[in-house]
Amino acid sequence: MRRRRDYEALSFGVAIGVLSAVAIAFLIAPTLILLLTSFTDSESLKFPPSGYSFRWYAALLEADQLLATAWNSLVVACWTTVASVVLGVTAALGIGRSRSPWAKAADALFMSPLLLPALAFGFGALIFFNMIGLVQSIAGLTLGHVVVCVPFVLRNSIAALSQLDPAMLEASESLGASRFYTFRRVTLPLIAPGVGAGAFIAFMSSFDNIPVSLFVADARTQMLPIYLWEIIETNLDVRTAAASGVIVVATLVLMILAERFAGLTKQLR
């Protein structure tokens, strides 16, 4: 009996350990290898590189179109984040603590962009923006991005609100604070980390959006992910690796900041 249980515990531990180890390697390896490859001194993407240099990073500075598309993506991501936070947080305050079926239905509607094939929405947005004359503009791109990014803000804000002790709000109001004052001085500071984490994810997913931009953008409003995709499809340019390296490092820095100020990993658990 004892022997059998020892054997079971051992085999269980080994199975979990091996699968997790593979999963972790699986998660990290591509990014690491890409980073190393981007410092190659040759014209090819062979790994391991024959030598290391910064030449492809230097080449990025002269890649005007790449920089222009990166700027477009940045502008759209900033507007998208602002709009998503304003709309998402107000909606979270409205439905977050309600148990009515209407609130449930609204919540399901607001979260549905995460479940629907985003590409179908992107195509719908193309037809729709064509009708109302908004196609191929930064405004149209932003509107489309807000639809697919607002769920992240909403979900994190609702989660933060559900952690909030109602007694705090009652205390504030019974001491004579107005509802708006209570919101500004009690609710907002307490849910800020959750909102911040949601805003961060909304920003990153707008910056990285493909399905909507693919249809709504054109040559003038080209977005970075689409442009990179086109380069990779046509010719494997090492500059793409350098651009990817910049994106990875920027993401890492932003994530560390988000962890510092909003406790990102705690918010997402």
Partner: peptide, 11 residues
């Protein structure tokens, strides 16, 4: 979460 926040194209 690092991979989900790094661009899909990059990954």
């Amino acid at each position: 979460i690092l991979p989900i926040l790094t661009s899909v194209v990059v990954r």
